Amino acid sequence: MTLTAWFSVFAVCLLGAMTPGPSLAVIMRNCIQRSRGHALLASWCHAIGIGAYALAAILGLGLLMTQFPQLFLWISYLGAGYLVWLASKALRSGPSSFVVDSEDKVHIPYLHSASEAFAIVFLNPKIALFFTALFSQFIAADMNWLTILMLVSTVTLVDGCWYTLVSLLLSHQGILPWLKRYSHWIDRVTGVVFLLIAARVVLV
């Protein structure tokens, strides 16, 4: 995998994590209503779930590439089309109406926060579809385990580190207003990156 391709994956994962949505709501609720420790644990359980989906997508695509190359080619085209569709939605997005309930802190077992964060990923089939679309643009027949490990580690660490940063900064009450104010610009940058990745199918 080239450095350019790796950076594309890195950028998409970072922008995706930064976009306000259900996952961010879960992390912030843990920090606001429970504790920073709950939020940090939830951040990395969420990241593990993301990494598991990424690994499953890569292995499944790798098997298709070796056993059914023509089918893999069509999946690559469909994946590019899905990224274009996501890009069109992102480019048309407006300011976020994302809100988090800020009730008083309550005592919740750490295991509950961990399972809640993992479930928000595991029970969302759109994440599997997204990773299939994303990695179908970069999988190569000669991809080795070191490259696979690098991709899965990138996805996991970007997700975990971003939500860790959110958890640590939330006490200053600055991160949420910033995300709400600039979320539509994050979406638009993400849309451009999606279009560039999808264009690789046509241009390469």
Rank of each mutant, 00 (worst) to 15 (best):
R188H: 13
L129H: 00
C161V: 13
L179F: 10
F130V: 04
L151D: 00
L149E: 04
A128S: 15
L157M: 15
S171E: 11
M143W: 08
I127R: 01
A133F: 00
D187N: 15
F138D: 00
C161F: 12
N144H: 10
P125Y: 03
F135T: 01
G160F: 03
V155C: 03
T147M: 07
W178G: 04
W185G: 02
F138H: 00
A128R: 02
I120F: 09
L170G: 12
L176C: 07
K126H: 08
P177M: 09
L170K: 08
S153V: 10
A128E: 04
L169T: 11
F122K: 04
S171V: 14
W162K: 01
L146Y: 13
C161G: 07
V192G: 06
W185K: 05
F194Q: 00
N144F: 03
V152A: 13
A140H: 06
M143R: 04
L169K: 05
L146S: 14
A119D: 07
L196E: 03
T190M: 13
S167D: 08
Y163T: 00
M150I: 05
V155L: 08
V152T: 08
F194E: 01
H184R: 07
T132G: 13
S153L: 11
A133V: 09
L165V: 10
L179I: 08
T147F: 07
Q173G: 14
F131M: 03
L195P: 01
I148V: 15
I139A: 01
H172V: 14
R188C: 11
V192I: 15
V192A: 15
T190D: 00
Y182T: 04
S183L: 05
T190I: 09
W145H: 10
A140D: 01
F135H: 00
T132K: 00
W178Q: 02
L169R: 09
A119C: 07
I139S: 02
F130M: 09
T154G: 12
H172Y: 12
L134I: 02
L179G: 10
L169I: 10
P177D: 08
W162D: 05
C161H: 04
